[in-house]
Design a protein around this nucleic acid. Sequence first.
DNA 1: TATTATTTTCAGAAATTTCTGAAATATATG
DNA 2: CATATATTTCAGAAATTTCTGAAAATAATA
Lengths: 183, 183
Amino acid sequence: MTLTPLQQEFVLHFGEMGNRWGINRTVGQIYALLFISREALNADQITEALSISRSNTSMGLKELQSWKLVRLKHYQGDRRDYFTTPDDLWEIVRTLIAERKKREIDPTLTKLRELEMQGPAGDHYAEARMTELRELIELMTSFYDDMEKLETERLVKLMTLGSKFASLIDKAGAVMPSLKQRS
Amino acid sequence: MTLTPLQQEFVLHFGEMGNRWGINRTVGQIYALLFISREALNADQITEALSISRSNTSMGLKELQSWKLVRLKHYQGDRRDYFTTPDDLWEIVRTLIAERKKREIDPTLTKLRELEMQGPAGDHYAEARMTELRELIELMTSFYDDMEKLETERLVKLMTLGSKFASLIDKAGAVMPSLKQRS
DNA sequence: TATTATTTTCAGAAATTTCTGAAATATATG
DNA sequence: CATATATTTCAGAAATTTCTGAAAATAATA
């Protein structure tokens, strides 16, 4: 497996971006490689294409599996595991967002609830700030849940509304006053 | 400056989350501390509260400034810099999203356009995948731009639509067919 | 200008993460 | 069962990031 210059550059870019995305270079590169490969690849092919060690490939694939970002595939008469990304890009994005939410948002929501449970600590400002933060995370989380449920077609339609977007919101009926924006 | 147990725990939590958010522990802690402090703090106060070195504080504050996440404040007869977070939590979230988009999405969009510019490389599948990815990022980016423009009040209303959400999209007029979902 | 106060820079130390090679484990086949 | 194939684990090496202390730079005041 040798990469074309185009593949090479794409893969290296995702390796660099890996840092910013909270995954390491190798994991980024493996995912990029799978993403642009028509056929599923086995660990040895990945290892060779990326010039990394076999064990590094193994760990990277495990990490990608924990993110639910790769699919396993098997071929008749070949007992090696072959890996691919879902064909549907929207599915990939949904998974990515769900996993990032789980890792980056949910633990904080849990922590904030936990701290509030411990009861007032006489630290009025800090407590108010934390409550405000928790409420905002809850609001955004419930919005996420609603968007998550939408079929891709509706999601695409929503995203292409453009200037109609704001007026559409205004047309919708009133909402519960308790959830209105704080001053 | 000594922290209350509540503050302590909140600050430590944000330090831990820092990793997952692509900022380091210290930066996370500094931000958390400023977030729950009623008054603006100077570098020495932060240094003492977090038990870190003065230089680390300096670098952390610089990093937070590059994220546009802190405000500078000055007091009469005191030439030290005092730092705060915006009172408006929505503003903080908007800034955070804008900066993350800039760091995590925009470079890839640029790279994809650059690779497409280089013209067809005979690598049909990879090229198609990259085009698909670019188009999806562009769609999401334009949606982001629309949401970004909304006043907070409308944003909150949108987020509280709940079950009305899906039907609202359906009620909107048809969109340009060229931007419909790909099979 | 000299002095003091404040902040930044930066080389290297410390800590952490990433990666490798070798060994261990697991699984299939003759 | 013995052998071959495939994958995982893991200790330590390598690379990278984070943090510190000391020095330098910046800026106000006497």
